[in-house]
């Protein structure tokens, strides 16, 4: 079903987005198109609103009291996700999310992956088995865990847990995957594995990743957006951002002279 759009066309269009936590504004007039089946990196100093924007895309911010979109819209496939007809649950099935701190359920590995399908009422064992294997392979975890599917997911290493969370996300077949600093709690080896995984996933999913690691952004993203104080400062192909940024603030940031 996914990937019907052509590779270059935007899947998410954010226009003139203002966002507030209570009375505290967090985003101002953000305009951003996120292309389908590419990796878009969001970078910027701490507190500039990257996570906020990310969490807007699957409306996880709905859970925070007082958090609301003040102006502007977010369209996915042209549908305003804050529209009255939109069911947030359906939205989240299309837009998956991987968190900074890996959060596997205290269940078996198998049940973790099957969770999303079970929510949708899938009981068919064969189908579940197939999806579990497919997702774990997709997350490059299959070979490591195939003999211990029934063991607790809490027994995995940090990097494995994070890949499990990715596998769990792709098991529900989203079109967009949001990743909020997925590697910040991992060692370089585990980080490398996740980056590799992201490279593999980009052919099938549109990925938005928040990172503080410039090399990571440079290595694995196609587009990069730089945020500062709640504003989108610059958005361009990653190569351009890192080699010839148009904005001096961007240059200062990516060259590490600032914040």
């Amino acid at each position: 079903m996914p990937n019907q759009t052509t590779a270059s066309s935007p899947i998410v269009e954010i226009s003139e987005l203002d966002f507030c936590y209570g009375s505290v504004p967090a985003l101002h007039g953000v305009n951003l198109s996120i292309p389908a089946r590419q990796v878009t990196a969001l970078i910027g100093p701490s507190g500039c609103g990257k996570s906020t924007l990310l969490r807007c895309l699957n409306r996880m911010n709905d859970l925070i009291e007082g958090a609301r979109v003040v102006r502007g819209s977010i369209r996915i496939h042209g549908v305003d996700i804050h529209g009255p007809e939109v069911d947030v649950i359906e939205l989240r099935k299309h837009v998956g999310m991987v968190f900074q701190k890996s959060n596997p359920f205290p269940k078996s590995i198998y049940e973790n992956i099957a969770y999303g399908l079970r929510l949708q009422g899938v009981r068919d064992r064969a189908r579940l088995d197939a999806v579990v294997e497919q997702s774990l392979r997709g997350a490059a975890l299959w070979d490591e865990v195939k003999d211990r599917l029934q063991q607790s997911a809490l027994g995995l290493s940090g990097g494995q847990q994070q890949r499990l969370c990715i596998a769990r996300t792709i098991a529900v077949e989203p079109e967009v995957i949001l990743m909020d600093e997925p590697c910040s709690a991992l060692d370089p080896v585990a980080t490398a594995k996740i980056e590799e995984l992201i490279q593999e996933l980009r052919s099938r999913y549109s990925i938005v990743i928040v990172t503080h690691n410039m090399q990571q952004a440079a290595r694995c993203s196609d587009q990069t957006a730089f945020f500062y104080l709640g504003r989108l400062i610059e958005h361009a192909p990653t190569r351009d951002i890192f080699t010839s940024p148009a904005n001096p603030q961007t240059e200062a940031y990516v060259s590490g002279r600032f914040g």
Partner: peptide, 16 residues
């Protein structure tokens, strides 16, 4: 504008 045009039913589910 998206190439496929708006699909307003994309995230909608008829709920009981």
């Amino acid at each position: 504008m998206s190439a496929t045009g708006p699909r307003p039913t994309l995230f909608v589910r008829r709920r009981l």
